[in-house]
Design a binder for these strands. Structure first.
Lengths: 155, 155
DNA sequence: CCATAAAATCCCATGCTATCCCAATTTAGA
DNA sequence: TCTAAATTGGGATAGCATGGGATTTTATGG
């Protein structure tokens, strides 16, 4: 199973190409389609991304459990498929970000790849910095981290 | 399962490399990825660390319901997965601490590896000494339950 | 159906950085 | 004290990100 960790900032060249971090590529190397799937995030000025096999998995999960999602979430999830783009790697492990997708995240001359475990996101570097600082503050204030460790890892 | 005990202080060279204590490495030698995962602690000027297996486990457990819409998961992901770094061992069992990570712990010319059972921490030696003294004082004052709770959680 | 232009893809070259490899030194154990 | 293991240091190497050109594919108009 793929695991995406850490944050990388890479440059976008004139052609709109960006290197996907090598460790992210390594996490996807067992897949048939050598590339990623991206779509615009609903909650953030950012892009959601993962491998194609996970997209298939998401489709299956929606088929079987659509009643578990609320109507709104169902609509959101369904529109993911319409918005999603398959971006293949070139020989050097780069993808080419389509203009409209890049615009949604405000990405211009560099892109920030953010690991989220099973998935990752792509942000404009400055925007993500702000978001991360705020998120970190929220986690510090609430006792979220304790619940997390205790329930899952604290054996 | 890996068990990290005792405290070791090792030097950081000009390239930012530190030897991970051999007993800590031994505790991880059954894992595929020969190295560790580190991220900045929320509560302390220190780094949390453990093997990649444990991080994969954490990712899986958070990922069970494809939760693209949870605010809490969002913050956790941004704080833990985005912040985490995979640091592989070199031939001599060293890791290279990235500058920003090292800065959070105030680590400059030497690093203190502190065993915490299933996980361990990395501190600046002086900072840890102070922290340990303060913790001891709290125990003497009778604030034992808090100290115990914190240690159990791995913060 | 063909010709041309535009765009996306592929291919190779470069600089930088992280990693590897080997040697020296220190520490721990017998 | 002697020996083996662990830590420390530095030069060499390989991998990655990046840039630019060449080639193929796709769209457009005749």
């Amino acid at each position: 199973m793929s695991l995406f960790l850490s944050t990388y900032v890479n440059k976008v060249d004139k052609k709109g190409r960006v290197s996907v971090p090598s460790l992210f590529r390594a996490a996807l190397e067992t897949q048939k389609f050598q590339g990623i799937v991206v779509f615009r995030s609903y909650k953030h000025p950012a892009l959601e991304a993962f491998g194609l096999d996970r997209m298939a998995q998401l489709s299956q999960s929606l088929d079987k459990n659509f009643n578990l999602f609320s109507d709104t979430q169902d609509d959101l999830a369904a529109s993911i498929f319409a918005d999603a783009q398959q971006l293949g790697f070139d020989g050097e492990g780069r993808i080419t970000l389509p203009d409209d997708i890049a615009a949604h995240a405000g990405i211009t001359e560099s892109a920030c790849f953010v690991g989220r475990g099973a998935t990752f996101q792509i942000w404009a570097p400055d925007t993500f910095k702000q978001h991360q600082t705020a998120a970190r503050a929220r986690v510090q204030q609430g006792n979220v981290s304790i619940a997390l460790h205790a329930s899952e890892v604290g054996q």
